[in-house]
Computed example of a mutant assay.
Amino acid sequence: MASTLEELQKDLEEVKVLLEKSTRKRVRDTLTSERSKIETEINNKMQQRPQKKPELDSEKPAAVVAPLTTEYTVKISNYGWDQSDKFVKIYITFTGVHQVPTENVQVHFIERSFDLLVKDLNGKNYSMIVNNLLKPISVESSSKKVKTETVIILWRKKAENTRWDYLTQVEKECKEKEKPSYDTETDPSEGLMNVLKKIYEDGDDDMKRTINKAWVESREKQVREDTEF
Score class of each variant (00 low, 15 high):
Ile76Ala: 09
Cys174Pro: 06
Ser113Tyr: 02
Asn43Phe: 03
Val105Glu: 00
Ile92Met: 05
Pro180Trp: 05
Asp11Pro: 14
Glu39Thr: 02
Arg35Cys: 03
Thr150Ile: 09
Val146Glu: 00
Ser36Glu: 12
Leu167Asp: 01
Thr32Ser: 12
Tyr200Ile: 02
Ser142Asn: 01
Asp11Leu: 07
Lys157Gln: 08
Gln83Met: 04
Leu192His: 11
Met1Thr: 07
Gly96Trp: 12
His98Met: 15
Glu178Cys: 10
Leu68Tyr: 15
Gly123Ala: 03
Lys52Ala: 10
Val88Gln: 02
Phe94Glu: 02
Arg112Leu: 14
Asn43Ala: 10
Ile42Gly: 00
Lys158Arg: 04
Asp82Ala: 13
Asp226Val: 03
Lys175Gln: 14
Val100Asn: 06
Ile90Gly: 01
Leu8Phe: 01
Thr186Lys: 12
Gln9Ser: 03
Met207Asp: 11
Leu117Trp: 04
Val105Arg: 03
Thr162Tyr: 01
Met1Trp: 08
Lys37Tyr: 02
Asp206His: 03
Asp205Gln: 15
Ile76Arg: 02
Arg112Ser: 10
Pro188Gly: 01
Met46Ala: 06
Thr32Asn: 03
Glu39Leu: 08
Thr210Arg: 00
Glu178Gln: 10
Pro180His: 11
Lys53Ile: 11
Gln51Thr: 03
Arg35His: 03
Leu133Tyr: 00
Ser141His: 08
Ala62Met: 10
Glu217Ala: 05
Thr70Glu: 15
Phe114Gln: 09
Val64Phe: 07
Lys179Ala: 12
Lys208Trp: 08
Leu133His: 00
Leu12Asp: 09
Val151Tyr: 06
Arg112Val: 08
Val97Asp: 07
Asp82Gln: 12
Thr186Cys: 06
Asn194Arg: 10
Asp57Gly: 07
Ala159Phe: 12
Glu34Tyr: 01
Lys158Trp: 12
Val97Met: 11
Ala214Ile: 13
Ser36Lys: 05
Arg156Ser: 14
Ser33Trp: 00
Ala62Val: 13
Val74Asp: 15
Thr102Pro: 00
Val65Lys: 06
Met1Gln: 10
Met46Asp: 08
Glu201Lys: 08
Val195Arg: 09
Trp155Asp: 02
Glu160Ala: 05
Lys37Val: 08
Arg26Tyr: 14
Tyr200Ser: 13
Asp120Ile: 11
Trp81Arg: 04
Glu111Val: 00
Phe87Thr: 06
Asn125Ile: 09
Lys172Arg: 05
Trp164Glu: 06
Lys175Pro: 01
Lys52Ile: 14
Lys197His: 11
Val17Phe: 07
Lys16Leu: 14
Lys16Ile: 11
Val64Trp: 04
Ile76Pro: 04
Ser36Val: 11
Thr23Asn: 00
Thr210Glu: 04
Val27His: 04
Lys16Thr: 06
